[in-house]
């Protein structure tokens, strides 16, 4: 395996549709809950330890070779907001396209046949990591980082925030990213013996409520 494949997969320019999603930041900005660099950092911190941890666990488990159908159901149960389930499947489908083009693999083709309308994005990412020769730790890091980098770059556009401030906020979260990735991988390894109930199920009420509010707006910049 080449560790450098992780850089390709985690690159914000990897063409898998992430740029059109704000990870809940657009709703939080409109509600006044994100108004600058400090509140962006707290938003990202909260998202990382809830939705980010949950997604990282799913992804690490997929990278370990756990049945993606069981993981996709576990993702549904951990995603009560239908707007977020739709977004996760849309992003999963887009990621699958990019991953199949980048790292052709029979597993990815099979996933596409199983989920023609898309599987949850973290599950796809775990399998993409496998196809790229990466492991569960890589997948967990990639997903945990995406859970904060998406809202950060969206907020730069939404608030014309100084991009250096946003990037500094991400850098300050690095030690917590390490912990989240560790927890996610540890839980994913438990799935082998205990089933998908062992996966983290962290939730964030305001992300759930905000996603449904956002889905109802007639005019918005981001898809979620």
């Amino acid at each position: 395996m080449s560790r450098a494949a992780l850089l390709v997969l985690a690159d914000g320019r990897f063409p898998a549709g992430g740029h059109a999603h704000s990870g809940g930041a657009e709703a939080a900005v409109k509600a006044g809950r994100i108004s600058g660099a400090a509140s962006l950092e707290e938003f990202c911190r909260g998202r990382l330890h809830t939705a980010g941890l949950t997604a990282a666990g799913l992804s690490a488990a997929a990278a370990l070779g756990i049945d993606p159908v069981a993981l996709d159901r576990a993702a549904d149960a951990r995603t009560p907001s239908p707007a977020l389930r739709v977004a996760a499947r849309k992003l999963g489908r887009q990621l699958l396209r990019a991953a199949r083009a980048t790292w052709p693999s029979a597993e990815l083709d099979a996933l596409g046949r199983e989920f023609p309308k898309g599987a949850h994005q973290p599950v796809v990412l775990g399998l993409a990591a496998r196809a790229a020769g990466l492991g569960p730790v890589d997948a967990a890091y990639c997903v945990a980082y995406e859970s904060v980098s998406g809202p950060a770059s969206a907020t730069v556009r939404l608030l014309s925030l100084d991009p250096f401030d946003a990037t500094r906020a991400l850098a300050r979260l690095a030690p917590e990213l390490d912990r989240v990735a560790d927890r996610a991988v540890e839980a994913a390894r438990q799935v082998v013996d205990e089933g998908v109930d062992a996966l983290p199920a962290g939730s964030a009420p305001l992300l759930e409520i905000g996603a449904e509010a956002h889905a109802g707006w007639p005019v918005r910049l981001f898809a979620s």
Binding site: R33, E42, R45, A204
Partner: peptide, 8 residues
């Protein structure tokens, strides 16, 4: 962290 912040 972040449990009392804008995402949670």
């Amino acid at each position: 962290g972040g449990w009392d912040g804008p995402a949670v």
